[in-house]
């Protein structure tokens, strides 16, 4: 089985949801013409990233009576979508969120579980912390979504793997930093290294959509990637410019790789649990 994936590394207008929605819809049209099965947008693709006091103004609920999600859900009859947005729950907590839309329905919403609040980041000041990491079933198999800092930690991808995800969809709004004499930024090299490592260690597909553009002095570097279950890079989008990057995922590769390399079969989850229990019960 083949999955025709597209990753949209876009620039956004900070706080202008309507303008960003229009851009989503036009890229959806473009991807549709290329017979795309699944189109993934970056973190906070509908709102922009450094929202600060804009958070409550740009929040939406992923329902079919929401003016932003209504057209997106309608579009999801033609191809599956992952969009980034600010989710407001019924008690008015705001989350950095990704929604997986398919066949006019919301299949899954992930709330970012790691909010970087250090260095140049201040997410914990403005957002609520998500508290679950769950895989979910799609028409292409079981998947998992994580947002930026979520996969800087090893445990969320590991949990998704154990929960049955064979395709990991990562989205970011990653500010570029660390310019040395290398042709890539330190932050880009770091992210590419760990994504390749997850694909290799979990013998799964890892797709990453990162935004581009600037917000004040911050620069987002793009560089979308897809790695296959052997840890090989299937595609690599350009740096620093908007692009739709297409990848054909041969889902049979999961079987071939795992027949050779049964890391999933041999993973000793009971051992992990007993050691975690011991570690967590220590004074």
């Amino acid at each position: 089985m083949k999955l025709h994936l597209a990753l949209a590394q876009i620039n956004t207008k900070l706080g202008d949801v309507q303008a960003n929605l229009d851009k989503h819809l036009s890229l959806i049209d473009e991807a549709k013409k290329q017979k795309t099965d699944l189109l993934v947008f970056p973190e906070l693709s509908l709102t922009g990233y450094v929202l600060q006091d804009l958070v409550s103004f740009v929040a939406h609920r992923p329902t079919d009576d929401d003016p932003v999600f209504k057209p997106l859900l309608a579009a999801s009859h033609d191809l599956d979508l992952v969009v980034g947005f600010v989710d407001e729950d019924s008690r008015h907590r705001f989350y950095i969120a990704s929604a997986y839309l398919s066949g006019g329905k919301v299949l899954h919403v992930h709330h970012k579980v790691y909010l970087p609040t250090y260095g140049l980041f201040d997410e914990g000041r403005f957002f609520a912390w998500g508290d679950s990491v769950r895989a979910f079933d799609t028409r292409f198999g079981r998947m998992g979504m994580l947002i930026c800092e979520d996969f800087w930690h090893a445990s969320p991808p590991y949990l998704l793997w154990l929960d049955g995800a064979d395709i990991l969809l990562f989205s970011s709004a990653s500010p570029g930093r660390g310019l040395g004499d290398n042709e890539k930024l330190e932050s880009a090299r770091w992210v590419e290294r760990i994504n390749m490592a997850y694909a290799s260690m979990f013998t799964c597909f890892v797709a990453h959509a990162n935004r581009v553009g600037y917000e004040d002095g911050l620069h987002f570097w793009g560089g979308t990637t897809v790695f296959d279950p052997n840890g090989e890079e299937l595609v690599h989008g350009p740096y620093n410019e908007e692009a739709l990057t297409y990848a054909e995922l041969d889902l049979n590769q999961l079987r071939r790789t795992r027949a050779r390399l049964p890391l999933l079969r041999d993973e000793r989850t009971g051992l992990v649990r007993s050691e975690l229990d011991r570690i967590l019960s220590r004074d």
Binding site: L179, D181, L185, G213, Y214, D216, H219, N240
Partner: peptide, 20 residues
Amino acid sequence: DLTINTDLAREILTGFIQSE
């Protein structure tokens, strides 16, 4: 070593001026 990749620096900084 304070050496920077000048191609990448140029790309980011001209993009910044253009954008801002």
